[in-house]
């Protein structure tokens, strides 16, 4: 019978409590920042006929940062097996494919075809 000491070691990795407190602090600070920045108009620069709402972009960057901290440290993905990490990344890949449907709505006026 073969054993996998490497894999078992990773599974039982114990994260120091100080890491949890640091992540918690960062999540709280980022929550405060996202509320404050929502009151500031960051403008709508135009890229390829699409008006980019900078407030939404900033809010999403903050949310993605917070989610990444939770996934890596609270959910231990930083210390998990490569197989779990592949599952996490591929689930996000599928989400991106799903959300790419938005491209249809964005691009409808581009060619100026009647009825679009």
């Amino acid at each position: 019978m073969t054993s996998e000491p490497q894999a078992r070691h990773e599974e039982h990795h114990i994260v120091p409590l100080s890491v949890y407190f640091l992540v918690f602090g960062a999540l709280m600070v980022l929550t405060y920042v996202t509320v404050q920045v929502a009151h500031v108009d960051l403008g709508h620069p135009e890229v390829l006929t699409v008006r980019i709402p900078m407030n939404v972009i900033v809010a999403l960057v903050i949310a993605i940062t917070k989610a990444t901290l939770v996934v890596l440290f609270f959910m231990h993905v930083k210390y998990s097996s490569r197989l779990v990490q592949i599952i996490v990344v591929s689930s996000l890949l599928w989400l991106v494919i799903l959300l790419s449907v938005v491209g249809d709505y964005v691009s409808r006026g581009w060619l100026g075809n009647p009825g679009t």
């Binding site: 929550t31 996202t34 929502a38 949310a63 917070k66 989610a67």
Partner: peptide, 8 residues
């Protein structure tokens, strides 16, 4: 995590 996105 879901709430982290719903809130903003």
């Amino acid at each position: 995590i879901i709430w982290i996105f719903l809130f903003p």
